[in-house]
């Protein structure tokens, strides 16, 4: 609760929370109600303009209701973002802990392997997964999660290294605290704030990456709905029906903005002195465009 209050105190945190709240709300509402079945194709109602035939935002070429798709798309987008963040957390934390806790030479190998993976294009991972398993939410989530995870590993490693070298951890160790006890009692609680901030950024990266991958044809196919997929399908007709492209684009932008601002709010809350962690930022922002 104190975290929540601290987040709300910062302007960006509050705006971020509202935007993310809207995203979550849309996703939840779409579970029980949408104006129309978002997947129902009725070609005779294709390309209706907004506010005609009971369709507030109009319909696409197959006659599917745009508003219903946007609401249902929030579900797909949120799911993608959360799953990707979960995978990133597991991958990142495992690699980071492996790097700092094992004997030095193995640690060096892990560090080097992480760097190789960071240099490996996420897009390629996505393409290969898509080729092997077919495009699905899982392929997108895995590619983005692993891509963000290796970057997270770099950040978490630096942070873990810092914490392990602090006097009190060294003292605890000297006093006979076992490795796992140190990890549980000292390491994890101390790197948690950084990780949380980073994970909020992973969420925004995942939303953008889902849009980009779906656009390139590596996204989840029917009956799944996501904003990236809507962009992919509608971009062909942007000259004839630009609004059908503009809405999902704005929805993506609002969610990404929400996650980013929330991340800023969390950071400000976690670090009142506004100490800037350039390394922390560097790791994750880079994946933006992929």
């Amino acid at each position: 609760m104190t975290v929540l209050r601290a987040v709300l105190k910062s302007r960006s945190g509050a705006v971020g929370l509202v935007l993310v709240g809207l995203l979550v709300l849309s996703a939840l509402v779409s579970l029980v109600w949408t104006p129309y079945d978002p997947t129902l194709a009725r070609p005779q109602d294709g390309w209706l303009l907004p506010f005609s035939g009971g369709h507030v935002l109009g319909t696409d070429r197959l006659g599917r209701d745009e508003l219903s798709q946007l609401l249902a798309g929030a579900r797909g987008t949120l799911l993608t973002a959360l799953l990707a963040a979960a995978i990133a957390a597991v991958v990142g934390l495992t690699l980071a802990l492996a790097a700092v806790l094992v004997p030095r030479w193995i640690g060096a190998v892990v560090v080097q392997l992480t760097d190789v993976l960071i240099a490996f294009p996420v897009l390629l991972i996505a393409m290969i997964l898509t080729a092997v398993y077919g495009g699905s939410t899982w392929t997108v989530v895995t590619a983005v999660g692993v891509g963000a995870g290796v970057n997270l590993a770099r950040v978490a490693r630096a942070e873990a290294g810092r914490v392990l070298n602090t006097d009190y951890v060294l003292a605890a160790h000297a006093a006979g605290s076992g490795t796992w006890r140190t990890v549980r009692k000292h390491l994890l609680p101390n790197i948690a704030p950084t990780l949380v901030v980073q994970l909020s950024l992973v969420l925004s990266v995942a939303v953008l990456a889902e849009a980009a991958l779906s656009f390139l044809g590596f996204g989840a196919p029917a009956p799944a709905i996501s904003w990236g997929r809507m962009l992919h399908e509608q971009q062909q007709y942007i000259a004839a029906r630009p609004l059908l492209v503009i809405w999902p684009g704005l929805a993506v932008a609002a969610s990404v903005l929400g996650f980013n601002l929330l991340g800023d709010g969390l950071r400000e809350a976690a670090d009142a002195r506004l100490r800037v962690r350039e390394a922390a930022d560097a790791g994750l922002r880079v994946r933006e465009a992929s």
Binding site: T39, L40, A41, L62, R64, A222, P223, E233, Q236
Partner: peptide, 14 residues
Amino acid sequence: YPTEIGDYLASELK
């Protein structure tokens, strides 16, 4: 192929 064909088939068969 256009993804809409798959969408349409799914909708019709549903």
